[in-house]
Design a protein around this nucleic acid. Structure first.
Lengths: 199, 199, 199, 199
DNA sequence: GATGAATGAGCATTCATTCAT
DNA sequence: TATGAATGAATGCTCATTCAT
């Protein structure tokens, strides 16, 4: 439907305009939020004309939705890659928790964007389904733990919300500039959550 | 800071214009978010002229900040009232967790407003101090638990973020219309968190 | 709903902003057409800020519709005033024909605006009813002539379209700058139409 | 002026890109009007790229002007073909009137396009000459009638405007969906006009 | 010839804020 | 105090036109 994103291989800079627009949008929205990010600013940051954005995206809303969809998939990937099925479940849990944590801390733009998105009234009203899909991979992972008797037999839905709530808590703490968030504190966090959930 | 809100005692309706404006603002922002809530709409809902708002508040931003400050104090009160110092700490913990949960579920406007506020770029940039103060009462409560040896000796700051993250997880689940959130599930949630944090 | 149009009596210029906007709109649209008349230009001609227009009118479309409605009523008045019920029908017919002709020639803005409006796709699709009402007074006048046996017993609807078509034909000829349109030619035109329609 | 439209004889479909563009333009403008017909839409309907249009036409305006020129010639042809010089003038008049009527009713696209064009400010300003030429064939036909003493000795120009005004009146009535426009009503219309004009 | 991505001026409309009354 | 008309900068989006391929 649109040109593959990786055609221009000779530069490290945005591969094409579509990608440049997406990157500019992420950058600006994570810093300023939706409404403080006019399309003209996106255009300027992406080094394209304002109208160009509308070749690739129907509207501001659709641009943002697409960005969210990208990160939803990315997060699923992060979870999948953080989960080493060979290990005992406890270690897998630790891997997923820390994997998500690290991804967010290394990609604070994405984290902030997702938080903005999840709290925008648009989303809360119309695209609940998207939010649903967002938690899906984590949910599935936890369900496995419940079914195999490693985790308490409680609502997997609740568990997913809680685990995600705990991860974002640590991420927010870190991103807020708190220097005490080191490996030791992280281990404490994982252990704490695990002890609450384990059977 | 501003004239004390003189209560109109002969009617149960909005006490005065200032209060009416604050109430209308909460109502609209919790439903629509900041940017979908123009001042003209606030004026209409509060039954005052647009200009009147500017007698009581310097700007839209200041109005919103003041609303947040109100709820920060309110939340501190809720925590204080939910915490019965006579009981064993475990029960106090349960009381605070459920107290906050119930307050939010019964006042979804306030919950949604606070979530909007916490995720608005304004806040994340300028009024970190406010956010800090917001968690303060919960933080203090948890510190007591650590100092008296009831809770794990881990960063009280981390603990505050995590507990709050867990509470909002359950609230969000409930407000999203999930019918499985009943007393049993709540007990599970509290127990789960407690088991993670207890020494 | 809005201030009466004639409050400012001390100047011959636009009585208030609402009127100024309507007048500017008529002026510009009659010259340039709908789409070549941006709201910013209306604002400038009316000496108001762009936003002010939206205090008085919901949208460009509604502003134009209101203008049309005004002229529809005006035309009905012109017909009524041109029709002297004391005279024989033939003279009345002549009076209405020439009355409309003269009004249009003296108010070419209104004539051109109405022609633009009648040929805009909006109107042709949505507000057929408005068009219907527009011809109404002429239609009624002709029906009287048919019922009293002064005019041929043919479709009054057809007759209205035809008479109006003839009047606009002469108006267009005059407005196109044709200097041969004088009283003699007008008399010829009226007589010609009358001879076609009379019983 | 432009390369002769080379007919693609092996298919009944659009003869070449140039023709396809003209047809798409007619189709869209008659439905939506000039300004609601972007070039991109014309391109899509004509199954050509947007840029291609500019190989064949200098600008949107020129494309539209050319379309009008085509129909001007077409109308002249219709008049010529409807006029059987062997018959008495009265029958010829009837033939021309009904010929034009039928052509428009069978080609409403062209009728609506011409009406749009005639009321566009462009035309009213710049290409009066075109409008003039448009009425020419009808004018000439009526002049013959005047010179041979069949029609009143009045301004042939006025007569042309009036006859055309009457024809379009009936066409508009028909196209507006009025079911009473049948052969009888048409005969009435022709007779009515004829009786007004005949010597 | 043909393409369609890219441009950027232009448009209708919104909205926080001001100020004369 | 209170009003609400007025402001005008800012926004999302459109579209005729160009031009490298």
């Amino acid at each position: 439907m649109h040109p593959s994103v990786s055609m221009n291989k000779q530069s490290g800079r945005p591969l094409d305009k579509r990608t440049a627009i997406l990157e500019a949008t992420l950058d600006l929205i994570s810093k300023n939020g939706f409404h403080a990010t006019p399309m003209s600013m996106v255009a300027k940051h992406a080094n394209v004309a304002a109208g160009t954005i509308y070749h690739y995206f129907e509207s501001k809303e659709q641009l943002i939705d697409e960005l969210f969809a990208m990160y939803r998939e990315k997060i699923a990937l992060v979870i999948a890659e953080s989960d080493d099925a060979q290990k005992p479940y406890k270690d897998r849990f630790r891997g997923v928790f820390l994997g998500l944590y690290e991804y967010y801390v290394n990609n604070p733009d994405q984290f902030l964007f997702i938080e903005h998105y999840a709290n925008s009234p648009n989303m809360t009203k119309d695209s609940k389904e998207d939010a649903f899909n967002f938690y899906m991979p984590l949910w599935e992972f936890l369900r496995k733990g419940i079914h195999t008797g490693q985790l308490k037999d409680i609502s997997s839905r609740l568990m997913a919300w809680m685990v995600y709530g705990n991860i974002t808590a640590v991420v927010k703490m870190k991103l807020s500039g708190d220097l005490t968030v080191d490996m030791m504190l992280l281990n404490t966090a994982v252990t704490t959550v695990w002890e609450g959930l384990k059977k």
